[in-house]
Write a protein that binds this DNA or RNA. Structure first.
Length: 422
RNA sequence: GUGAGCGUGGCCAAGUGGUUAAGGCGCCUGUCUGUGGCACAGGAGAUCGUGGGUUCGACCCCCAUCGCUCACCCCA
C-alpha cells in the first residue's frame, strides 16, 4: 500500500463514530448544565505561547512539539494541549471585562510528536474546559464534580479519581527543598533516571515507577506536598476536600500526583480507569493561578482539565457496555430498466423529503442482485419498480422482515405506504 | 530517543528452501432470464512490506531499510 495515514494518526471509521458521537454529546450536555460555553481556537499558535505557557522544562516542550516555520519564517506549533490557547484567547479578547469567572469548553485535536503505542497518538482529541477568573476552591469542586459527571455519563462508571495539592509559588519551594534534603543522603539507592530528576525537576521523583531500585520505598517515605502548604494553600485544600465530601465524590488523595506541566498550582487531579496499566489517564487537570501572568496578563486565577476522547472510546470498547445502533435504511428502491430508474430517483427524493432514509439499489444489477443488496443493507422495506410497474402505475412494496408484499400506486408512495404490510 | 515482537489479497490466516502461494470472512455473478436471508457452483482480488545477499532454486535462510504493535520515558 502506497499511502497510509501518518504515523500516530488514525481514521475514525464509520463503525467507531457512534462512540465519538456519544462521548461528545455527554461532554456538551454536561458542560452546558454548568453553563460552560464553547470556544474554538486555531489548531496552531506561535511557538512562543507554548514555550511560555506549558513551560520550557516540560517533556512536551523539550521533545514533543510539532513545530514548523511557515513561508514567512514565523515559528508555529500545532497545539500540544488546550489551556495555553484558551488563556491567550481570554487575554486577546479582553474577557476580563466579562462577568468572572469565564467558563469555557472545547473539543479539539491536540498534537504531540511521540512514539505511538496503546492509548497514545500523535494526533488525539480532547474535551477540555477552563474556568478563568475565580480562585475559590468552590470552583475547583465544581470542575471536579463536572469531570466526574462527564465520565460517568459517557459510560465510565468505575474510576480512580486522584487529587493532590502541590502548593503555589510561595510554599512549593519549601516542599521541594524538603524533598531534596530527603533524597540527598540516599542518592545511591535510587535509579539513574531519578538521579537526573533530582537535579533537574525534583518534584518528578515522586512519579518514578521503577521497582529495581529503592525508588518506591523512597517515595513511600518521602515528605508529602500537603504537609508543606502555606496558610492560603492549606485553607484552599481543606475547603476543597469538604466540598467534595459534601458532594459525595469518591476521591483518592495521592501524594505522588505532581503532573507534568509547569503551570499547575494548588489543586491537581487525574482520573484513571479502575484497572489501569500505563498511560491510561482518561482525564487530567488542575489549577493554574500563575499562568495568565506568565502570558503577560494581570494575575488571573484559573482551573481546568483535559480529557482524551480516544482513551475513553478505548475504555468503552474494552468494557463492551455501550450498545451501538446501526444506521439502517427504511427502504431500498429497486429498479429494472431506464424508465424505472428515472421514476425511482424522483420517488426516493420525495420520500427523503418526508423524513425517510432511502437508498437506491445499485444500477445494472438483476432484481435478484438488488434484493441481495437490500438484504445486506438490512433494510426494512423494498420498493420494486420495473417495466410492469411503469405500465400498470403500481409499485411493489415489500416488507423484508416477513416477506409480504402489496402494490401501491406509484404516484401515491409516501411514508404511509409502509404502515400496514403484515 | 531506548528496547522487544511482528510484516502473506480489504480482513483473518496456512505454507518455514523446490512445479500454477491453501483455506475462511467479505465483495460480485450464476443455479432462480422479475424477488432477499439457506445451499451449491463460479469470479474478481497477492509483484508474499521494500532493497540487497546466500543458493541451481527463496514466502521460507542472512543483512539492511521502512512500517506496525507493545514496553520505557512522559502524558490525554
Amino acid at each position: 500500500m502506497r499511502y497510509r495515514s501518518p504515523r500516530g494518526t488514525q481514521d475514525i471509521l464509520p463503525e467507531l463514530q457512534p462512540y465519538w458521537h456519544h462521548i461528545v454529546q455527554s461532554a456538551e450536555n454536561i458542560a452546558t448544565k454548568y453553563n460552560y460555553k464553547k470556544i474554538d481556537t486555531p489548531m496552531f499558535e506561535d511557538t512562543d505561547l507554548f514555550l511560555r505557557g506549558v513551560g520550557e522544562g516540560t517533556d512536551i516542550v523539550e521533545k514533543e512539539m510539532y513545530t514548523f516555520l511557515d513561508r514567512g519564517g514565523d515559528s508555529l506549533t500545532l497545539r500540544p494541549e488546550g489551556t495555553a490557547s484558551i488563556c491567550r484567547a481570554y487575554i486577546e479578547h479582553g474577557m476580563h471585562t466579562l462577568p468572572q469567572p469565564v467558563r469555557l469548553y472545547y473539543i479539539a485535536p491536540a498534537f504531540r510528536y511521540e512514539r505511538p503505542q496503546r492509548g497514545r497518538f500523535r494526533q488525539h482529541h480532547q474535551f477540555g474546559l477552563e474556568a478563568i477568573g475565580d480562585g475559590s476552591p468552590i470552583i475547583d469542586a465544581e470542575i471536579i464534580e463536572l469531570a466526574y459527571q462527564y465520565l460517568y455519563s459517557a459510560g465510565i462508571s468505575k474510576m480512580q479519581f486522584m487529587i493532590n495539592n502541590i502548593g503555589d509559588k510561595s510554599c512549593r519551594p519549601m516542599f521541594v527543598n524538603a524533598l531534596v534534603e530527603f533524597y540527598k543522603k540516599r542518592l545511591d539507592d535510587i535509579c539513574e533516571d531519578c538521579r537526573l530528576r533530582f537535579s533537574k525537576n525534583p518534584l518528578r521523583l515522586l512519579d518514578c515507577k521503577r521497582t529495581d531500585y529503592l525508588c518506591q520505598q523512597m517515595i513511600g517515605d518521602s515528605p508529602h506536598t500537603v504537609d508543606y502548604l502555606c496558610t492560603e494553600c492549606d485553607e484552599h485544600w481543606n475547603r476543597l476536600l469538604s466540598y467534595l465530601d459534601s458532594l459525595n465524590i469518591n476521591y483518592i488523595i495521592n501524594p505522588r500526583l505532581v503532573r507534568g506541566l509547569d503551570y499547575y498550582t494548588k489543586t491537581v487531579f487525574e482520573v484513571h480507569p479502575q484497572e489501569s496499566g500505563s498511560q491510561t489517564a482518561l482525564l487530567g487537570g488542575g489549577r493554574y493561578d500563575g499562568l495568565m501572568e506568565e502570558l503577560g496578563s494581570k494575575p488571573v486565577p484559573g482551573i481546568g482539565f483535559g480529557s482524551g476522547i480516544e482513551r475513553i472510546v478505548g475504555e468503552l470498547r474494552t468494557n463492551k457496555n455501550f450498545v451501538i445502533k446501526e444506521l439502517i435504511p427504511d427502504a431500498i428502491m429497486i429498479h429494472i430498466g431506464s424508465p424505472a430508474s428515472l421514476e425511482v430517483i424522483k420517488i426516493a427524493s420525495s420520500l427523503r423529503n418526508e423524513g425517510m432514509n432511502i437508498v437506491i439499489a445499485p444500477d445494472g444489477r438483476s432484481l435478484r442482485g438488488q434484493m441481495r443488496y437490500a438484504e445486506s443493507m438490512k433494510a426494512s422495506y423494498v420498493i420494486i419498480i420495473g417495466q410492469n410497474e411503469i405500465d400498470s402505475g403500481l409499485a411493489q412494496v415489500k416488507n423484508m422482515s416477513n416477506g409480504t408484499q402489496k402494490s401501491c400506486p406509484i404516484n401515491e408512495l409516501s411514508p404511509d405506504s409502509f404502515s400496514n404490510i403484515d
